[in-house]
Design a protein around this nucleic acid. Sequence first.
DNA 1: CTTCTGACTATGGCCAACCAAAGTCACCCG
DNA 2: CGGGTGACTTTGGTTGGCCATAGTCAGAAG
Lengths: 165, 165
Amino acid sequence: MEPETLQLQGRLSDRGSWTATRCSIDAALGVVGTRSALLLMREAFYGTRRFDDFAHRVGITEAVAAARLKELVDAGLLSRAPYREPGQRTRYEYVLTEMGRDLAPAALALMQWGDSWLTGEAGPPLALTHAGCGAPVAVEVRCAEGHEVPLGETAVDVRRRVRPA
Amino acid sequence: MEPETLQLQGRLSDRGSWTATRCSIDAALGVVGTRSALLLMREAFYGTRRFDDFAHRVGITEAVAAARLKELVDAGLLSRAPYREPGQRTRYEYVLTEMGRDLAPAALALMQWGDSWLTGEAGPPLALTHAGCGAPVAVEVRCAEGHEVPLGETAVDVRRRVRPA
DNA sequence: CTTCTGACTATGGCCAACCAAAGTCACCCG
DNA sequence: CGGGTGACTTTGGTTGGCCATAGTCAGAAG
């Protein structure tokens, strides 16, 4: 009985001859591969927008918050937008872009994994539900036909280059 | 028009009074929060089992591979099992545990995000399909009723402590 | 025109993660 | 019993992410 892993196909099946020179996981880690970056994104998902709130709620210094927020804005996950409260001067707030919002499944998957395996007796700290119907929310791996796909039934192949240049 | 964020409920709705002291994302990062740890897990999903293969395919030094693999075994994501090829002495291989396998959605979500936003013109390097039906595979956020749940329709609340001790 | 506040920047130091290169160790083979 | 090999360990050094403390800066408020 083999353990469950991805099924490598095509060029990949000779695994020895292949190393992942272009890997999207690695690329993603280049952008959100630090604790502070991902926790800042978590705060953004919670609706945080202002500099001081980011720094204090994540529990990092303002220096780190400034550096990391700048990186996230440069990378396109957040945008820096002017705003002003009445009788206050113009300030800037950090708002999720589509790119940033699209990271949510990854963050939630990580949270779900932590909930399942790392919380011990206390259980998950937070519960997610669908605001529409009240049912609990989960991250799932599915195919376009709607089947839930376990790791062992997932086939991987190198993609043909879309534009051969 | 508000931007899409999570809907905070219960104690959380007064966001100012709350900081995520117990956060499963943070906890998860404590285990797989480094580049090498997550890439080693990627290799394990690809079916890699042997020390040298891990080190070479991830592109890290043997020293780092040894340290990180030890951590992953200690944390319970991999298990170190003896094996022997005929006419060879006994060696050890690193095999995914259920805990490790369960991390796959998070890794795939990260890969999917990288595919969508970071690959530029070349497009995603790899394609995932369901081995059963051939349909493309994706990571999705869904509720138990089967609805796909966007960020803005996701409600978050603090869970009642399962065991009040 | 001074004070206060929110949003940063600057300085200095620590530690964890990484790399490169070399060494160890337990076999199995000839 | 000398070599080869896979699986590590050791050493030494660099970088990057983090912290704490202190400083800057723009613009209402008084």
